[in-house]
Design a protein around this nucleic acid. Sequence first.
DNA 1: ATACTTGCTTCGTGTAACTCGAAGTCAATA
DNA 2: TATTGACTTCGAGTTACACGAAGCAAGTAT
Lengths: 134, 134
Amino acid sequence: MTYTVKEFAEMFHATEHTVRYYTDIGLLPCQRDGGNHRLFDESAVNWMRGITYLKSCGMPIKEIKRYFDLCQMEESEENLLARYKIIARQREAAHQKAAEAKATADYMDHKCRHYEEILAGRIPDDTNPANWSD
Amino acid sequence: MTYTVKEFAEMFHATEHTVRYYTDIGLLPCQRDGGNHRLFDESAVNWMRGITYLKSCGMPIKEIKRYFDLCQMEESEENLLARYKIIARQREAAHQKAAEAKATADYMDHKCRHYEEILAGRIPDDTNPANWSD
DNA sequence: ATACTTGCTTCGTGTAACTCGAAGTCAATA
DNA sequence: TATTGACTTCGAGTTACACGAAGCAAGTAT
């Protein structure tokens, strides 16, 4: 089973532009059909899943590419360790991002309730940028 | 109490470049001292706190600016509601981001353990981009 | 007094990761 | 035959900075 650019983009909630961009910079492998159109197979789907996870850790595209290049090299203890280090580092980054995102969400809950109190007329409107201490 | 660009940047783990950039585009207010150097007061600190929260929701800078402009306008029911809508929307965004970040962190934990199994020699090295299904 | 260092200033270019639109190709359909 | 739709490449635009050059002003060391 293969996918066209459009189908592939939809699978990952990405734009076709982005998918083409990834193939152009060599981040995402693809075949071409008779009409020179990009075709993606299951392995490309798996690559792309990995890309989205690593991107979500905040990893720059160039580094993601380096990681995938490592994955395609001949196996060796050294290579394996290098890959592990990258993943471990990104795991850390992911946890930090998650904690930060949680804190932001909590804060926004609080801020939202504050607005609702004002709208209900229970407290006066003190909304001013200088009041972000709330 | 006022702060220089450097002090202010450090407070928010931002670069001096970024702080200057924010003042230049009118997102962050500041005074100037005799030597034309930027000076930030407590209210700027609060503004900046708000900016970092909203940015962390994924809100573009231009929209953040529009929100802060609303905060400085004359109060009215309409204005208040407009502001509330913005905040409520960003609250949603923040929760979505938090959930996604959590999922990524969990996945990275899993991936990390997978690597540790390989390194311990308990399972063979199948690490290949096409195996991101793991 | 002179030189150096520190910290700021503006200005202009560079970067990442897209994002958009123009212009063209090709196959299927009305 | 004409148009539609999906694809192609290419080049320019966007966001949110990052960086470096060149210059000023105050304080410190020699």
